[in-house]
Design a protein around this nucleic acid. Sequence first.
DNA 1: AATGAATGAGGATTCATTCAT
DNA 2: TATGAATGAATCCTCATTCAT
Lengths: 222, 222, 222, 222
Amino acid sequence: MTAAATSTTPPGTSPPARRVPRQERSRRRVESLLDAAARLVVERGVAALTTRDIAEAAGAPVASLYQYFADKEGVLLALAQRDMDEMDTQVAEDLAGVELLSVATLVRTTMAAYVAVYRRRPAFVEIYLRGRTNAAVHRFGREHNVRTAQLLRDLAVDAGLARPDLSPQVAELAVEVGDRVFQLAYEHDEAGDQALVEEGITMVTAYLERYATPAGLTGVAR
Amino acid sequence: MTAAATSTTPPGTSPPARRVPRQERSRRRVESLLDAAARLVVERGVAALTTRDIAEAAGAPVASLYQYFADKEGVLLALAQRDMDEMDTQVAEDLAGVELLSVATLVRTTMAAYVAVYRRRPAFVEIYLRGRTNAAVHRFGREHNVRTAQLLRDLAVDAGLARPDLSPQVAELAVEVGDRVFQLAYEHDEAGDQALVEEGITMVTAYLERYATPAGLTGVAR
Amino acid sequence: MTAAATSTTPPGTSPPARRVPRQERSRRRVESLLDAAARLVVERGVAALTTRDIAEAAGAPVASLYQYFADKEGVLLALAQRDMDEMDTQVAEDLAGVELLSVATLVRTTMAAYVAVYRRRPAFVEIYLRGRTNAAVHRFGREHNVRTAQLLRDLAVDAGLARPDLSPQVAELAVEVGDRVFQLAYEHDEAGDQALVEEGITMVTAYLERYATPAGLTGVAR
Amino acid sequence: MTAAATSTTPPGTSPPARRVPRQERSRRRVESLLDAAARLVVERGVAALTTRDIAEAAGAPVASLYQYFADKEGVLLALAQRDMDEMDTQVAEDLAGVELLSVATLVRTTMAAYVAVYRRRPAFVEIYLRGRTNAAVHRFGREHNVRTAQLLRDLAVDAGLARPDLSPQVAELAVEVGDRVFQLAYEHDEAGDQALVEEGITMVTAYLERYATPAGLTGVAR
DNA sequence: AATGAATGAGGATTCATTCAT
DNA sequence: TATGAATGAATCCTCATTCAT
């Protein structure tokens, strides 16, 4: 379930001179495996992913894969982790740039951030929107949604946009609905059906505004 | 594994009236295979389903399974078909019994019908809410949602509840969101988190009322 | 191995009036099955032939196939029989029309007769030249060659073209070589490489003329 | 399923000398699989060959077979390759030992070399003469004949035995005829009908001498 | 005679994972 | 640490043939 132990250079011991230090080489291997996995997933879908193919595509022996990942699911999980981090970063950055924060802008900004990432990374669309058929991906997406919901809820409540009775469940529901909106919008359309996304933003916003404070409706300056 | 006993008609005895005609026996076989498949899906999940197990659980040779179904996916599809029909029937019946038809009652009645079926058939929950990991189930659920959306939209527009500009896409979005609500509500809870369902009804209703006629808001008698 | 027993109408019993008498219907069924088999063999090759496909292509139930043929090989054999008969007829007719009979004209006329049949029936090329991969076809072709060799040898000896010491083995060898020539000539070329056939005629003639009488070399009028 | 015990080298003990290096073990495995395949082919014929049986006969898991060969056909092909190489070697050696080279001695030596190999390796007879029913074997035999024809033709022309107008097609025809001769000679006779082979030598020689130079007829010393 | 249905017995191939080196 | 090789355990599916009716 977890990646293999991180190899640490014993303190006080200088590693033998080499161009690429051991730890760095490891990191590169991991990255190349993840890249290969991502590539394959986009090409053939998550279901057809095999350890052999991942290794081969990364130019590594199959056995090496198990040096860095516990098992096949571990690869998917690491890949998801890496990608989710990128998504979270985008959301955080975009939210930080918002001047007038309200429930409406919170929803719009967040969902727009996702759109931005999906545009930049077609692999994400394939894996996280179309690849839900895979159990591991499904679970990870679900977990990420839970974390995202908590994050955004706390933000909204702390910023005085939402009443404290906005339960985690409600936040989760909102995020999940947004997630399903994306799944639909990108189902057939590589670029995503933006009108559908817009509808989704409307729906989620309207729903969440039921839990908004007056400030959440009008917005607060940052 | 063993050869079935040969039933011999005692000489001088006219063969006993055939209890079960050929066609009926066939139908039973199909049903028993579908039942077995459903049982296994509930027990182990869709991913772990194998043709061998289905056949064995139904007490039939694997080859017989292929007499009735094109392949493993065919079994899942037939199962889905059978189940979806039951759902559609429940929805149709419940809608027929509604006295005051409005967007709100339409949404509530429909979603309540699903809840009723889920309560009656735990297998459905396993297969259609938790088993989305399977590609076939996923696709089938998606297609059913599309059909359901069209049906309900036409009903709403024809009954004067919704304006004609309620697009199929919007109806689809609403159904999909309702679907996701159920997925969440039944994720951990065998009986379904009814509060969550209630939230879902609220959200979908609020969303769809944006496309309602005045009559759609107040309701029309049947 | 043999086709099912021929149904005979009991003598003295007039069959009930019907448009198509029973026996005729049977014959038609057999023919349609053979035609279907021939068609499939040409389309997909002998290896991919299945009883199911034959029956389906003939619009008959699989079980019916077993009413007329002992087994799958029986179908192939009956097909071969039918075809070989056509070939033998062509050879016999063409030989009957030859005015100056010699070893050379015997060889040439026979091989030309085969070419004529191959031109008329592309299915033969597929089955008997390219389909030798199938054991049944292989065996049948072999047996037919043996019979043909015997026939031609007897003809040659009786007509005074060949010395009696022309053994059956030698005749067989000659026929088999001719057969291989055809296999080569039609390997890639639908129409057959006629230059190759010509070489074959040359080789076989030269070989057999070693066993010819003086008359066999110069020819005898019919 | 269970974690394997970590093999630890007892401290102070150098690991026992590896008897068989890895690469060598691999080679042996491949050989044993090929041997098993050859054995089975001889016993039951090419048609009845299954991957399961090959593996079992070689004492290897089926999956291992797929480590070395792409598929079942791959096994047959490898076997053919190995055997054809042996045949080519025998022919080359025997030809190298001929003192007076002529078309006649070329044909005789080559065919005698085949006879020698067939005597030494009964499996070859089964596989390459009787096993032509298999598509893979058939194709491989055909290809080998083409190569052999080219080789011998070039040799004959280069040595001044044959006129340059001896086309590759003619050479091929000669080789194919020789091949058919062997098929006939070994059809029922384990040891091969040598009289038939002799006839074949005669026929092929007579045919090829039509393309011979004077030297090709009388022979040239080596 | 005709046939829908049933099935025993494989068959080729895949794959994640683990070792021995 | 790295990896070539090994493999247990399944998986889906096919097919010729035979019954029961």
